[in-house]
Amino acid sequence: MSDTILEVRNLKKYFPTPKGTLHAVDGVNFAIKKGKTLGIVGESGCGKSTTGRVILRLLEATDGDILFEGQNIRHFNKDQMRRLREDMQIIFQDPFASLNPRMTASEIIGEPLLIHNKVKNKQELTARVAELMELVGLSPRLVNTYPHELDGGRRQRIGIARALALKPKFIICDEPVSALDVSIQAQILNLMQDLQEQLGLTYIFITHDLSVVKHFSDEIAVMYLGQLIEKAPARDLFSNPTHPYTRALLSAIPSIHLDHKMEREVLQGEITSPINPAPGCRFAPRCKYAAPECTSREIHLNEINEGHFVACAMAGGDPLEIYEAILSRLH
């Protein structure tokens, strides 16, 4: 499809550890259309941040293809990557740790422009930095401030301005608002939404916050222990969550509505180790619907509705049938 900006196929990232191979990302497939947002959600250790880093080649993939605008960038050399970085950027979670404490706001925002020779002289640099600061809503008087003088919201605005400096097409946002207070979080989310509309940006939005991801994404991918277990348009995922893990995850969100006591599907136990995982469904040890077929074969994503993919041995057809199958299993 021509409007697909990024596609990953069978992406894998393994880390060797003394105890065995850690499967951080294990056979992930997805595609994103230009100008859209894909939300990746999951709990700590599910491989969502690693996926983001592997796509940008900040970490080298163990296997798989990363196609950006049709080109497989996994085998790009240094020069090619350098050029590509203009199009692909990242915003990090902790706006304090990701900004150099010894550089001023304008130096941080201007650095990518200098590295990529985007400005001819000092005047042009100053003008461009001023433009970027205005774009992200930073007051011009802050040009010479250091990150420690600013609050979290403003620091994150600097991180966003830096990511936008090279006019990228695609930005990976790795928990960009998790460290911020709710009122500031909403300001930053609105800013990112406006920028997407203005500049036609494509986002991968990595987060553990399901209400933020629903608000922000066109499509949502749910990860569990390195694997993508469900992917659907945002609304479908919330109205018809199908994978038992997705259902447990959604039911765990505390609602702000007092009468909205969701039927909790409390998960037993905790996330198992991604080191040398057993074959089959990785959620099976915690799943109350688990059957022998869950662990006897690899479970792949299966389209159960238009655009709604689930990797569950129990899912595959009519949601009602699945539900009945689950019910019969319970009795």
């Binding site: 709710v182 609105n190 939404q193 629903k214 609304r235 609602s255 509505h257």
Partner: peptide, 18 residues
């Protein structure tokens, strides 16, 4: 505060931050 958090039950186009 309520305007700042995305509501799971009702979708809004934009948040209403303080």
């Amino acid at each position: 505060l309520f305007g700042s958090i995305p509501d799971l039950d009702h979708s809004v186009g934009r948040l209403n931050p303080i």
